[in-house]
Design a protein around this nucleic acid. Structure first.
Lengths: 241, 241
DNA sequence: TACCTATAGTCAATGTCGTTGACTTCATGG
DNA sequence: CCATGAAGTCAACGACATTGACTATAGGTA
């Protein structure tokens, strides 16, 4: 109730931040701290202000709006997380597993950003590098350029979309998640055998939603499918010549 | 400036809604109208109040909070959209295409709900029916129960996740979407051929993010992969006996 | 050195949300 | 015919992003 006007914990006439002590880099670092600690929903201008010991609206001197800040943050996190890990092993299957795993783990590390990371194109070095890396693996698998560009997109969409969905599962409140998981181990076993014969027969084998095997098996199925396409292309080439 | 206190467009002392004229069903119908017209972001309690000609907070007499309302709405839309369309053709590939297409189209029809529809388990008849339908197709494809349950999940996750991602693309403001699409037709063609040889070579063949071929090709790749698994299982059975 | 000015940080205010608690109305049934 | 409580209303709250007016200050210029 004394003199302290704003939410400064200690007394004293809260001082103004020194000039030029804020910058995009400083703000992004603070944003990363908050995102790691509280998730994306905790990343508000208010929280940023507290973290920076600055007024929340000072951020508008450096970013046009929150969207611009979030996009920059996504790119920074991506570069830091797997920007330097993508080194070819020489084995195309292993390389595609590598990039899929890197993206999957990255999304699960920042589940609050997963949705935006999956859907948007950042057109930044990290993204270019990913595409180049995957295209090269596809070529070594034996795909023609047409198939390679198609498969890069289909495979990339799969990896990003499924990772984002898994991530969004982890963002649910405990109550909702528990209910959802329970459904697959309880409710599906109680369905009538006449109406749902296949579910009844296999109900003890049904996987729960977040089962870790799902992602890796999905990747393997794509790899098989790519190999099949390469064989077909090879056969077509032989026939033509 | 006259007597009208609230935002009623016409004069007159806005009347109270007759007792018991609201119900979950009435509110859900209004919510669907708004969702169709303005998308999920337009579905606010304020908008619901206007649509119903009722006070926004009256809704709390029928739904605990907004989340409960949204989940109910998702289920209603799903049942209406493809609850009765899933009739087997006898051809397992065609059946899996059928359910994939139904889900894909449904998600694109309600892009604002796609994220929530993809991630959450509703454990309602429509969902049970989908699983049963897909399991049956897998069995007819020749998969053992272990593989069938796995593939149902992997395939289902793929379809829902990719559809949700495509849907979320359509939710971006025009500005962001235009920029993102332009990237694939312009910026990727300007990358240096030394640093990104594969991109340079294939840049005229790169598909744009929302290309309709991507979804159907992804489905076909999965179908090929499922067929391959079935063949392997058959071979293993023959060997064993 | 003393002043100017562009810029960075601050602050108060606005508008949009979801949600709450205190009201008012009114159909029912004792 | 009044008491009860459920259904609709309303004002207010707190969180949020964003805006425009302000104020202090670093760096250049006279």
């Amino acid at each position: 109730m004394a003199a302290a006007k704003s939410a400064q914990s200690e007394a004293g006439p809260r001082k103004r931040r020194p000039r030029d002590s804020l910058s995009r880099a400083v703000i992004l670092a603070a944003a990363e701290q908050i995102a790691l600690r509280d998730g994306l929903e905790g990343l508000t201008f208010g929280a940023l202000g507290t973290e920076l010991q600055a007024h929340s609206t000072s951020i508008y001197r450096h970013f046009r709006d929150k969207d611009e800040l979030v996009l920059e943050l996504i790119d920074a996190l991506r570069a830091k997380s797997y920007g330097d890990q993508l080194v070819s092993t020489g084995d195309w299957r292993e390389d595609l597993r590598l990039i899929a795993t890197a993206i999957h783990e990255h999304y699960l590390r920042y589940p609050g950003f997963a949705q935006q990371m999956a859907a948007r194109t950042t057109r930044r070095p990290t993204e270019f590098h990913n595409v180049e890396f995957a295209l090269d693996a596809m070529r070594r698998a034996g795909l023609e350029d047409e198939d390679a560009t198609l498969c890069v997109r289909v495979f990339g969409n799969h990896v990003r979309a499924v990772s984002a969905m898994e991530a969004s599962l982890r963002m649910l409140d405990d109550e909702a998640r528990t209910m959802d998981e329970l459904a697959w181990t309880v409710e599906y076993r109680q369905l009538s055998a006449e109406e749902f014969p296949n579910i009844s027969r296999t109900s003890d084998k049904l996987l729960t939603v977040g089962d870790p095997r799902l992602f890796s098996e999905g990747v393997e199925m794509f790899l098989d499918s790519i190999e099949l396409r390469a064989k077909r292309a090879k056969a077509a080439r032989r026939k033509r010549s």
